[in-house]
Computed example of a mutant assay.
Amino acid sequence: MSRLIHLNGPSRVGKSTLARRYAAEHPGVLNLDIDVLVGLVGGWQNDFDSALRTARELGSTMAVAHLHDGHDVVLPQLITSHDESPWAEELAELAGAEYVEFALLAGSDEHRRRFGAKQPEHEVDAWVQDALGESDGALLEKIVGDLDDYLAGRPETIRIDTGAQTPEETYAVIVGALRHPAMGVKQNG
């Protein structure tokens, strides 16, 4: 059975980096980075929210098709209490796939340190970093609060304190949890 592997968490906790590594080490896995799709929508800089909605719709179609074909999808995407629903989980259900959600978390100090040290990987990444940086941390703190609210209702989500681990250790936790479904993998279908 195919799986939708959702890496949730705020900016700069390693979602995209871990997703790229997982896809590189697991042939056939689709690394569905929604931020990359946002950058393909003309005018995204002027209306980011609209471009994000479009990218999520396109990504949803891609995910369901790939899952239906029997392949896994890794989705490095923040979903919070302000999203209409846990749409990633709904995609897995639609495709009859397994769904597993990891919440990659870091304490405030570690998160701020990473945010300041991170070099943007692409144009959308730079735009998001600038937008978050302009608020003197207020927007980032709001996002973390919204994520906490979302996670309060999601006991199945596997939470990983990335601040207390190296990227290697975080990756090992993810791979280990995926090998041992009793650690929280939810099956749909």
Rank of each mutant, 00 (worst) to 15 (best):
H82D: 14
D35A: 05
V36S: 13
R179Y: 10
P76N: 02
T61N: 12
D69S: 13
A23H: 09
T61Q: 14
D49I: 07
F115G: 02
I143M: 13
D35L: 06
D69Y: 08
E141P: 03
W87T: 03
D125H: 02
R113T: 08
S16C: 07
S85N: 01
K118G: 01
P155E: 11
G96T: 04
A24M: 00
G28I: 06
T61C: 12
I174M: 13
M183T: 14
Q129M: 04
L140N: 01
I158Y: 07
R159S: 09
D161E: 07
A177N: 01
A63L: 01
M1S: 12
V124C: 05
V100E: 07
R56I: 13
L94G: 06
I160N: 08
P167V: 13
K118I: 09
E141Y: 07
T80H: 10
V38Q: 02
H26A: 01
D149Y: 00
H111E: 11
W127Y: 13
L18A: 15
D148W: 00
G43Y: 05
V173Q: 07
V173L: 13
A63M: 09
S85H: 11
A138G: 12
I79P: 07
V128D: 11
E168K: 04
W87S: 13
L30Y: 05
G107K: 05
G163F: 02
R112A: 15
T162G: 06
V29A: 12
E101F: 09
A138M: 13
